[in-house]
Amino acid sequence: MDPDPANQAKANLSMMHSKFICCKLYISESRNAMAIDAIDRAARSDPQVVVISKFEDCLYNRVRYTLVSYVANDSSTGEVIYSPIRKVLLAMIEAAFSTINLESQSGAHPRIGVIDDLSFHPLGQATMEGAAWLAKLVASEISNDLQVPVFLYAAAHPTGKSVGAIRRDLGYYRPNYKGNQWAGSILPDVLPIKPDEGPTHVSHERGATTIGATPWIENYNVPVLCKDVATVRRITRRVSGRGGGLPTVQALALFHGDDCTEIACLLDPDHVSANQVQTVVEQIAAEQGLEVEKGYSTDITKDMILDKYLKIACGAD
Score class of each variant (00 low, 15 high):
residue 113 G to W: 00
residue 7 N to M: 06
residue 79 E to R: 14
residue 287 E to H: 03
residue 121 H to E: 09
residue 215 P to A: 13
residue 72 A to W: 07
residue 266 L to A: 11
residue 99 T to L: 02
residue 52 I to Y: 01
residue 41 R to M: 12
residue 291 E to H: 10
residue 93 I to N: 08
residue 85 I to A: 02
residue 249 V to I: 12
residue 122 P to L: 12
residue 121 H to K: 07
residue 116 D to C: 15
residue 243 G to Q: 15
residue 272 V to K: 12
residue 67 L to Q: 09
residue 9 A to F: 11
residue 139 A to G: 15
residue 182 W to D: 08
residue 208 A to Q: 02
residue 119 S to D: 02
residue 90 L to A: 01
residue 159 T to G: 00
residue 228 D to H: 15
residue 121 H to S: 15
residue 217 I to G: 00
residue 130 G to W: 00
residue 189 D to P: 01
residue 281 V to A: 09
residue 11 A to I: 06
residue 204 H to W: 01
residue 246 L to H: 01
residue 78 G to F: 15
residue 225 L to T: 12
residue 123 L to P: 09
residue 70 Y to P: 02
residue 85 I to P: 13
residue 286 A to L: 14
residue 58 C to N: 14
residue 82 Y to L: 02
residue 287 E to L: 12
residue 296 Y to Q: 07
residue 141 E to Q: 14
residue 290 L to N: 08
residue 185 S to A: 13
residue 165 A to H: 07
residue 49 V to Y: 11
residue 222 V to F: 13
residue 178 K to A: 12
residue 312 I to D: 02
residue 94 E to Q: 14
residue 83 S to C: 04
residue 143 S to V: 06
residue 134 L to S: 10
residue 32 N to S: 10
residue 290 L to G: 08
residue 46 D to I: 09
residue 151 F to G: 04
residue 249 V to H: 03
residue 292 V to C: 00
residue 258 D to F: 14
residue 166 I to D: 00
residue 89 L to V: 15
residue 179 G to H: 08
residue 122 P to D: 05
residue 92 M to E: 07
residue 217 I to P: 00
residue 149 P to G: 14
residue 185 S to W: 05
residue 3 P to N: 02
residue 87 K to T: 05
residue 109 H to Q: 14
residue 217 I to D: 00
residue 217 I to H: 01
residue 106 S to W: 10
residue 208 A to K: 03
residue 88 V to R: 03
residue 215 P to F: 11
residue 28 S to Q: 10
residue 75 S to H: 11
residue 301 T to S: 11
residue 3 P to K: 08
residue 55 F to L: 04
residue 287 E to T: 03
residue 283 Q to K: 12
residue 131 A to D: 02
residue 14 S to V: 10
residue 94 E to F: 07
residue 185 S to N: 13
residue 240 S to R: 14
residue 47 P to D: 05
residue 281 V to L: 14
residue 79 E to C: 11
residue 163 V to K: 04
residue 235 I to E: 11
residue 262 E to Y: 09
residue 71 V to K: 01
residue 79 E to I: 09
residue 312 I to L: 07
residue 122 P to H: 04
residue 32 N to K: 13
residue 140 S to P: 00
residue 144 N to A: 15
residue 203 S to G: 06
residue 2 D to Q: 11
residue 136 K to T: 11
residue 187 L to Y: 00
residue 68 V to Q: 03
residue 24 K to P: 00
residue 16 M to Y: 06
residue 133 W to K: 14
residue 275 N to G: 03
residue 33 A to D: 07
residue 200 T to D: 02
residue 227 K to Q: 15
residue 29 E to Q: 10
residue 107 G to N: 09
residue 95 A to Y: 05
